[in-house]
Nucleic acid binder design. Structure first.
Length: 271
DNA sequence: CCCAAGACCTGGCGGC
DNA sequence: TGCCGCCAGGTCTTGG
């Protein structure tokens, strides 16, 4: 489900209901996520006021004073605001209880997501410390991509999806950004010119920005924290369109697998 | 260091 | 209808 725009959409939906509010604790029904949910989570949170809800890559960071709750949605995770007495379904693993009777409910059928706690600086947490720049921040441009690509044989699409190179670009938006910048996803990263990386970085920026503006991409049942669906799916030009005509030249779009991920591209427009 | 594949999970779909 | 294999928005870990 979630790439950066979906995580950001979730963050924006939840922030007004969390920041400045006090937590009553947490209810953990299934602690076995990607990593175990910390024991004693509820007492760490109980009575604390939420200071901020921010995002680093695809991680949500909930700051509560004595530490930070790190939440990753994995492939199938979502967060929704519900009345705290709403009966839990099979995959509703964790509730963050907000003073006044609401809960932020973490649901994740595949359990690739994570709910972790760090008492120190989040940026020093092992999972965050090695992350590349934010694609919408000032540290990301074609130059950083080109630098990281030098001498590398990996497919440019794999490089783009490497969170140590740049965070937040998952399979959907990698496909879309490569189409927009007319780069063949299979190209060896090190063989691409600085100018073309400039165009790629620009495409990453615009496609993510547009997706955030439209509330993310709704696939299956993604909904933001406030329960509204995203509308970006209608804007996808290649993802999920294998065999259908290219929007630019009408050539049938091709699908190949790169690093076990489906990659769709126009064999004529993308070189 | 670089790269590909495996691992972790569940659910939905197409095909037989 | 039932079963089987494959696919899915992520990313850490392992092995060559």
């Amino acid at each position: 489900m979630p790439e950066l725009p979906e995580v950001e959409t979730t963050r924006r939906g939840l922030a007004p209901h969390l920041v400045g509010h006090r937590l009553d604790g947490a209810s953990v029904r299934q602690p076995r996520l990607r990593w175990p949910v910390p024991e004693g989570l509820s007492s760490l949170l109980a009575g604390r006021r939420v200071e901020h809800l921010t995002r680093r890559g695809k991680y949500l960071l909930l700051g509560v004073g004595n530490g930070t709750l790190l939440i990753h949605l994995g492939m199938s995770g979502s967060l929704q605001l519900v009345p705290a007495d709403t009966p839990a379904q099979r995959h509703d693993h964790v509730d963050l209880l907000v003073e006044g009777g609401t809960a932020v409910r973490f649901t994740d059928p595949r359990r690739f997501g994570a709910v972790l706690w760090t008492a120190g600086a989040p940026s020093e947490h092992p999972l965050l410390a090695q992350l590349g720049p934010e694609p919408l921040g000032p540290a990301f441009d074609g130059g950083t991509l080109w630098q990281r690509a030098r001498g590398r044989q990996v497919a440019v699409k794999a490089l783009l999806m490497d969170s140590h190179v740049v965070v937040g670009v998952g399979n959907i938006y990698a496909n879309e950004a490569l189409f927009r910048s007319r780069i063949d996803p299979r190209r060896a990263a090190g063989s691409i010119s600085a100018l073309r990386f400039q165009r790629l970085a620009e495409a990453v920026r615009t496609v993510l920005t547009e997706a955030i503006e439209q509330g993310g991409t709704t696939l299956r049942d993604f909904v933001a924290g406030d329960g509204r669906p995203g509308y970006f799916q209608q804007q996808l030009q290649v993802y999920g369109r294998a065999g259908r005509p290219c929007v630019r030249c009408a050539t049938a779009l091709r699908e190949v697998r790169l690093g076990q991920r489906s990659s769709v591209f126009c064999p004529r427009c993308q070189r």
